[in-house]
């Protein structure tokens, strides 16, 4: 039972927690604020926090100069495409391992996770050369394949941990109730599996959206998603904070909002159900 805590104590907790939370969040907040400043105000000394001339110019400039939406679309195609392709391959696999476990199931799962331990840089050269030779370099399709493969073990583990929580007695009850294979899948299993599949989808889109090894090494102008697009801001030194901020804000906003909605499933999903 939660014990009554004095309001004073609660007020102190609240104050300390909010200060720490705002400190952690501050770089994001600062980026968003800066994106609405002029370049001059962005580097003003002392920096202005809220009292500056708010402007949307940076956003229009970023789009006009560098085709932000093209890169945004690349990110969408690559992250959603690789996740859905991964789900199509992973669902039957996780399904079978959860419901028809054999003696090797545990080892197979462990082996799959261990492929995640393979450092990407260890296979960078061959993948780069293969992609160059078959013309996949700097294509969205090529990245969809690679990101699908690197996230496949995680997708399978997540799905497996969700499927395993569907109690066996429910399936038996359905069979006693006269459900055949088709109705069992249609009316009982699918509705029960959908929440797990949905959060796996969400979490892997986030992971793929933010992936920044293969997207940086295998893309150039054509297929660069937002990760690579933003990285291009690192080269020229100069006064571009406001535009960098606008581009950054646009790059993180969709996934940040998605992340806020998925934070409940985040822990359960990313720890494969080990922490709930």
């Amino acid at each position: 039972m939660a014990r009554a805590v004095s309001n004073q104590r609660k007020a102190i907790n609240t104050a300390v927690a909010w200060i720490i939370a705002l400190l952690i969040f501050f770089p994001i907040l600062w980026t968003i604020l800066t994106s609405f400043k002029t370049e001059a105000e962005a580097i003003a000394d002392p920096p202005s926090f809220l009292f500056f001339n708010w402007t949307l110019d940076n956003y229009t400039t970023v789009q006009a100069r560098s085709d932000y939406f093209g890169h945004f679309w690349n990110s969408v195609v690559i992250s959603v495409g690789s996740t859905i392709l991964g789900l199509i391959i992973a669902i039957p696999s996780a399904w079978a391992m959860a419901f028809v476990p054999g003696k090797q199931t545990k080892n197979v799962l462990m082996w799959m996770l261990s492929t995640k331990m393979l450092p990407p840089v260890g296979v960078l050269v061959p993948i780069y050369l293969i992609f160059r030779d078959v013309g996949l370099l700097d294509t969205r399709f090529g990245l969809v394949i690679v990101l699908m493969l690197i996230n496949l073990p995680i997708i399978i583990w997540m799905l497996y941990s969700y499927f395993r929580e569907i109690p066996g007695e429910i399936l038996e009850a359905a069979r006693m109730d006269g459900a055949g294979l088709r109705s069992e899948i249609l009316y009982v299993l699918t509705p029960m599996a959908v929440p797990g599949i949905a959060s796996t989808l969400l979490l892997n889109i986030i992971l793929a959206w933010n992936e920044a090894f293969w997207t940086l090494t295998l893309t150039a102008a054509n297929s660069a998603p937002l990760t690579a697009f933003i990285a291009s801001y690192s080269s020229p030194e100069g006064l571009f904070y406001a535009k960098l901020s606008a581009a950054s804000t646009m790059a993180i906003a969709p996934i940040l909002i998605m992340g806020w909605f998925s934070q409940k499933q985040l822990v359960r999903g990313l720890t494969f159900g080990a922490v709930k």
């Binding site: 907790n13 770089p27 990760t227 933003i230 990285a231 801001y233 993180i252 996934i255 940040l256």
Partner: peptide
């Protein structure tokens, strides 16, 4: 600990996790 606005605090604290590495590196 018990506090007011715990849900919002959680959202603020978790946010950096969703920021792509290139953005956070450049911003910092």
């Amino acid at each position: 600990q018990p506090m007011w606005g715990q849900g919002l605090v959680r959202i603020l604290v978790i946010s950096p996790f969703f920021v792509m590495p290139t953005v956070s590196a450049l911003v910092w």
